[in-house]
Structure formats: structure tokens, C-alpha cells
Design a protein around this nucleic acid. Structure first.
Lengths: 231, 231
DNA sequence: CGGAATCTTGAGGAGTTTCAAAACATGTGG
DNA sequence: CCACATGTTTTGAAACTCCTCAAGATTCCG
């Protein structure tokens, strides 16, 4: 197991008011004056795959918005087994629990090259209640993706789970998607690394997916949908 | 499958300021004046097992606090399979998504006799931002129980999942706990009804649990912990 | 060009599902 | 109060899936 505890690369102060995905993230409803009232630094981060954003049990005074990429949130079972309990994609807010002053609940690790912003909780508190609605929406998103993870990725036979994962990795109109390591696929779907590998390999042989480059796949959406619904 | 669409029994207006589990629920930090400012009716509900609190896709302007009992939140897979994605116990807030004006995401059904309060979202909005912290905490609880559901109840072998469920059904110092139907146990753990039944029956034979009355069990916590950690 | 991960593959066994039936519980009408 | 119908729980046997263990193939990186 690779332990790439890379210190997040500081890229510079973010200019939130000109953020391309502003409406996706937290500050959608803010006015120019509001932006002026932000006096704390919002760091701009870039994380390579495998880099750790934060560790469970640690306490910080920041939360993170994911502008681009994919981040896994993982926890450990009493017997030491590792389980990915949620995937965070572009627009997601990670580490919301910092708003409560409590320690982080997961290890947060990049699965794909990711761009994020580190936002001090004090900034949120100052702009509250203006951000209230947006914050609730983000919190709700966390619940929804957790439930989706359980419902779609941890239910049914292994081939159904893998099919549903491939369907979730990109919008249906884009045939291509990028996958990550088999060990992580297993930890996400609740199966062994070997089963994950075997199932992906089987899909390749059956032509349901086609590997264009290492871990870059072209998907047959219809076929995947059929498998996801139980052959 | 029993379809007990019982209309929730209206029990009377709740007196929140004298609520026994006030600190568990939403209104912990309110002053007497705050309570005076609540001008909308907070209904007091009692639900028998099997009663439906609300259905997915419907939109209402209330959320619910669970004062006593156990409620399941379930969703459906594309192929029609049913999956319990979260359990709500005493102190939980259910239907938080009503705060966003969006439809409920689950079917909410009582598993055990349950007492709850129906709180109009307008009440919360009026008392905001006084309730902000409490609200965030409840929202975070939803995320945490969802992740716990995935991590503990949907990971590993069936006997581990059943053991972890028995451990979660009551605090460790109380040896007794109450279970629900095998079909629901299966839907919660992601196994078939038969496997749920067989595993519970096996635990009874092995003396890990003892059935005092129908679905009322006395637990051997140590033995359950051993099984939960993988024999 | 090694060396170390990661991915793939295979065979055997353990665990789960499936299908079917029996045992049990519950509630209704005679 | 019993007989019966209904629904749930339990059990069994066979088929299947998934896991375990082990080895080979491949990729990645110094």
C-alpha cells in the first residue's frame, strides 16, 4: 500500500468572485460586497492522485470545496478493514464537520488529480446566514451521495455494482470515463480487490467497456444499464 | 408484504419547553422567549410499527424529530429492489430535506412504536439563526449514521453484519434489545431475508443471543463483538 | 534495466442465494 | 373457542457467487 502523504501544493489565493464553477460551490449567492468582506486567505490547492487532503481524527478550522477531480472519503472497521463510504466529485464540499469544531470523520484522499479550495470556517461563519441555504444544500448533498453509495454501489451482485459504478463515473452523454485502482474499487463496492479486477476484466472481454488508455474507458451505456438492473 | 398506510395518529400539541429529551432534539438552546415565538402548531405523533411517516417524492413543509422508537429510511433500486439506507433512532431528525423545499428522498416507516413531533419548516426558519448550530449538528448526524450504516452494516460477511446490528440496537450496558422483521433486517444488511433469518437463528442456537419474547433479545455483548471483528 | 507495486488469472472452498416446503404466529369468522 | 386463511419465520438442498490463496503478467519508477 502506497502512503503518499504529500503536502498539498499551495497554488495561490483564490479569486472566488471569478471562479468558473461558482454556482456549483458555496458562494453562489454572494454579492461583490460580500466577497470584499472575506478577509481570511482562501488557499488554492492541487492534489495529485493518492495525496491525502486530511486524516480522520484530526481537527482543523477549514473545509474544502472540490472544483475539479475526485476524492474518496474512507473509514476503518473495528477489524482494520478499509471502506470507502463516499465519493466526492466536482462541486462537493468536504470536511463540513469542521463547522461544528469536531474532528474530521474520514481520511480524504484524491483518486484523480483534483483542484480544491481551503476555506476557513470563520469565513463561513462571518457570511452566515447569507450562506445558510447553500450550506444546507451542501450538507444534504453529502447525505444523498452517502445514500446513493449504499443503494447503488453496495447492493446486489458484484457485476451490478461495477456496472453502476461505471455509470456514475461520468454523465451518460459522455461515453468516456476514468477509473481508479482496483483496490479502491473493491473498497468502494464492498468486494475484494480480486473480484473488482475480475469483473472489470470480464466487462472488457465482453465489450461492455473498452480500455483506451490505462484506466481510461469508453462505455456502452445501454449494456451497463442492462447489467445494473440485473442482466 | 403488509402495506399499513396508517394515518399518523394526532396526539395533541407538543409542549417543547417541557420536552423530556429536549437536549437531544432540535430546541436545546432556546430560551423561554423563543418558545413563545413559535406560533405554528407542532403536532405530536404516535406511529405503530409499519406505519408510514412519509413517502419519497412527496413534498411537505415539515420535518420530524424522533423522541422515541425506531424509523427506517428506504429507497428503491432501478430493478425494484428495496434497500434501507439509514436507521433513525431517538433524537434523530427526519425529513431535513424539507428545509430546502425539495421532495422527501425516502420512504420513512416506523420499525418500532415511535413518538415524534411534526415541526413546520417555517418554525425553524423563524428561529434561525438561533438553531443554526443545532441544525448543522443534526444534518451531520444524518451523514454519520449513513456512513455507519455502510461501514458497519453493509460490509463483511453476513454474520458480522448481523452481529454489528445487534450491537447497534441498544447501548452496550443494556443487555436487551428489540429486533424487527427478517425482511427488514435483510434490506438493511444487504442480504436476503433467508440469510438474515438463518443467521439470527444460528446466533440463537449458539447462545450469542437469547429470545425472551417475540423479537426481544438478550445479548452476549462480548461474543457479538468477537463475531463483529471477524470471529 | 531491475524492483516494486499493481493488475490479472486460476483452482478450490466457504458463504450466499435460490427455490421449495414445513413450522409457527396471528387474526377472522363460524 | 376452534378452524382456517394469511403472513412470517425457519429449515433444507442445490446452484451459484464470491473469497482465499497463490502465481504469473504487466506497469511504473528510480
Amino acid at each position: 500500500m502506497k502512503e503518499a502523504e504529500i503536502e498539498a501544493a499551495w497554488h495561490g489565493l483564490a479569486s472566488c468572485s471569478r471562479c468558473q464553477i461558482q454556482d456549483l460551490v458555496l458562494f453562489a449567492d454572494l454579492t461583490p460586497e460580500d466577497f470584499g468582506a472575506i478577509h481570511l486567505p482562501i488557499d488554492d490547492l492541487w492534489l495529485p492522485p493518492g495525496a491525502v487532503l486530511y486524516r480522520a481524527e484530526t481537527t482543523q478550522t477549514s473545509l474544502f470545496t472540490l472544483r475539479e477531480g475526485l476524492v474518496k472519503l474512507e473509514q476503518y472497521l473495528p477489524d482494520g478493514a478499509r471502506r470507502i463510504v463516499s465519493l466526492a466529485g466536482a462541486g462537493a464540499v468536504i470536511g463540513l464537520e469542521a463547522m461544528l469544531g469536531t474532528p474530521y470523520e474520514h481520511d480524504a484522499v484524491a483518486l484523480q488529480p483534483s483542484k480544491l479550495c481551503r476555506i476557513p470556517t470563520a469565513v463561513i461563519q462571518r457570511l452566515s446566514p447569507k450562506l445558510n441555504q447553500a450550506l444546507m444544500r451542501k450538507w444534504h448533498d453529502s447525505v444523498r451521495t452517502a445514500h446513493a453509495c449504499l443503494r447503488d454501489l453496495s447492493t446486489g451482485a458484484a457485476r451490478q455494482r461495477v456496472a453502476r459504478l461505471f455509470l456514475q463515473l461520468a454523465p451518460p452523454e459522455i461515453p468516456r470515463c476514468r477509473l481508479f485502482g482496483r483496490e479502491d474499487v473493491g473498497a468502494l463496492l464492498g468486494v475484494t480487490t480480486e473480484t473488482a479486477s475480475k469483473t472489470v476484466a470480464e466487462f472488457k472481454r465482453q465489450g461492455v467497456i473498452r480500455e483506451i488508455a490505462p484506466n481510461l474507458f469508453e462505455r456502452d451505456i445501454d449494456a451497463l444499464n442492462r447489467i445494473a438492473d440485473g442482466d
